[in-house]
Design a binder for these strands. Structure first.
Lengths: 224, 224
DNA sequence: ACCTGAACACCGTTCAAGT
DNA sequence: ACCTGAACACCGTTCAAGT
């Protein structure tokens, strides 16, 4: 006989898209992109690997949903009433920090064309541009510029995280990269060699924000 | 006995990193990213799949080298004497067109952190910023903004190409996307719904360039 | 309706063995 | 030094069979 308690228990244990996504995020966060397999996921959910396909179309679908989940938390958080430029900065930094915390989201964002996670960012940014008074025909271009910039960095940070052994520290990594750049052929790579000096001391997050401000300043020019 | 002719023949037939990369690019261009396997590559090179590992560390190495090859052709092409802003536009469009012609390069660029292909773009852009008179401390940030923007679009276009069935035409695809956006929840996605109208008529390449100009304009502000 | 888990059709990579 | 190709240790996905 199935008691009420048992049914409640069942409902919690029952497989669902939400529970699958949640568990997928746990695995991705704890063990990285390569650890997410349907077998690992099924083991963690104490079910068969085929069962997952009842709730999720395939692995791409699962990853897209997981990324969309993480981004939704970040993007919704922008409080109203803030100055539009500042709001754009916050959205961008929110995405940046989310990728820092979940590098696999970066991979996902830069692989997705017009999936939900990206739409969410696009929408949030676009609204701020409207608030800023950007004329309608230019809004699409401006939003696209901001979003593409964010996604470019997303992919980049994710790639860096993939390379970085989990225990290496950042400064050591940057110093190593700088050393490699400093050894490039001076005839072919004068700029990289010059920049190499700045690399170890530079702050990724601030550089990211500097790029946002550059684009915002370009947008500001359009408003005059 | 090994005649001179035979040795020459040997030299052409012999496996080499160059020949492997060349063949890999052929496969990637003709049949897409998923078609590049070591087995397919070995078959095309009439050799064993293990032989490839003598010349190439692994698949990542191979893909990075292939992308670097394609980008090198594009980036070197910038003739001297052009106005720096125009040169930046040409570099960016060169990368854009390369990705259009070889979508797999887009995937690769957005996955690579500081690999050769990206370094090449960074270097080319950085030099133009120097020529433009951007003060040294700001050069790194400005170059990074431009490159991240380009890479963001790279990933995006590659993803779109992955989705697009090889025979679908672009306008049909955009119209379909626009229709999907128009159906989004008006409360949650007002901006996307508004932009949906502009989507079918919009030119990706021009929008890309508009973003570059936005960043260049922001950089121009710094020069005053 | 939902879940099981063996089976299928692949992968990248390794490595003893050859030339 | 370079190449061969079978073998290994995986994948995502499917599907007959169960409940």
């Amino acid at each position: 006989m199935v008691t009420k308690a048992k049914r409640a228990q069942r409902r919690t244990d029952a497989l669902s898209k939400e529970r699958i996504i949640e568990t997928a995020i746990e695995i991705l966060d704890a063990e990285g992109e390569s650890a997410l397999t349907f077998r690992a996921l099924a083991a963690r959910l104490t079910t068969g690997s085929g069962a997952i396909y009842w709730h999720v179309a395939n692995k791409d679908d699962l990853l897209a949903a997981a990324a969309s989940d993480v981004i939704a938390r970040v993007v919704t958080d922008v409080s109203d009433g803030t100055e539009p430029r500042e709001a754009v900065r916050r959205i961008a930094l929110g995405v940046y920090d989310a990728i820092e915390a979940h590098p696999w989201v970066g991979t996902q964002l830069s692989r997705e064309p017009w999936q939900f996670a990206v739409l969410r960012i696009f929408e949030a940014v676009g609204r701020q541009l409207q608030a800023l008074g950007v004329p309608e025909p230019a809004q699409f271009d401006c939003a696209s510029a901001l979003v593409n910039y964010v996604l470019g960095l997303a992919g980049h940070r994710a790639a860096a995280a993939r390379l970085l052994a989990p225990d290496t520290d950042r400064t050591a990594f940057l110093t190593a990269a700088a050393a490699r750049w400093a050894q490039l052929d001076p005839g072919q790579y004068p700029f990289m060699r010059q920049v190499a000096v700045q690399l170890p001391g530079h702050d990724d997050r601030e550089q990211f924000l500097a790029g946002i401000d550059l684009i915002l300043s370009g947008i500001g020019e359009k408003l005059r």
